[in-house]
């Protein structure tokens, strides 16, 4: 564990806590893409198949459980909670995320560390996570002004993988035989997708104006 990875995990956890706060405090999920939340739930379920077979550390196990439980709870809440689901922007959240699923799985079959069930699902979860934010970014562009908690949610979600890139650079220089090309390249793509959001987020913070993504 290094400071970059720990900071990244804490930002990831913060993004989830901000999203839970927004949904439970405002009893609303307006501006949140259910499709992105479904993709994230799949990412964690596909990546943590080794949850009960490989024990890495208490921290690792607890964080995996937190990510799985929180992501599935958010999807359940947006679909089933009578009050919350009324505020879901169903007509705006129309990104065809099944293509992202199919493409990620197809790529995982072609590019993986080893052609085994667990490695294919691990690579699938890495590729899927890189593109899972797309429905959310499209929804933000369509829904005009973005409320503060939603903006902070997306910001921390983008920042966490940027810290993981620093973590991989650090490990590359401090550990022998460290090579994690699939995660590195996918992480670069993932962070790059946030580039324009980060720009408009910075502008809104500098000018102290409401965050607005151009359509």
């Amino acid at each position: 564990m290094n400071i970059f990875r720990f900071a990244g995990d804490m930002m990831h956890l913060t993004s989830i806590l901000v999203l839970l706060l927004k949904i439970y405090a405002t009893k609303s999920c307006s501006g949140i893409s259910l499709k992105t939340q479904e993709l994230y739930a799949l990412v964690f379920l596909a990546r943590y198949l080794d949850l009960f077979t490989d024990f890495i550390s208490v921290y690792n196990t607890i964080m995996k459980l937190v990510f799985i439980v929180s992501s599935t709870a958010i999807v359940w809440c947006m679909k089933r909670d009578r009050v919350v689901r009324r505020s879901y922007d169903k007509q705006l959240d129309t990104f065809r995320h099944y293509f992202l699923l199919a493409a990620s799985f197809a790529l995982a079959l072609l590019v993986n560390e080893k052609f085994t069930f667990q490695e294919i699902f691990w690579a699938f979860s890495i590729y899927l996570e890189a593109v899972a934010i797309l429905p959310q970014l499209v929804l933000l562009q369509r829904s005009g002004n973005v409320d503060n908690l939603t903006g902070q949610y997306v910001f921390f979600l983008g920042a966490y993988r940027a810290f993981y890139i620093l973590n991989w650079i650090y490990r590359y220089f401090t550990e022998t035989h460290f090579s994690r090309w699939i995660a590195c390249i996918s992480g670069l793509v993932q962070t790059a997708l946030y580039a324009d959001f980060f720009y408009y987020y910075y502008i809104s913070w500098k000018n102290n104006t409401k965050l607005k993504l151009p359509a």
Binding site: H12, D50, D54, I56, K64, F67, E113, Q118, N167, A183
Partner: peptide, 10 residues
């Protein structure tokens, strides 16, 4: 084991 080393990140 190799697998453990491999997936030690979240």
């Amino acid at each position: 084991s190799e697998v453990k080393k491999h997936h030690d990140e979240l």
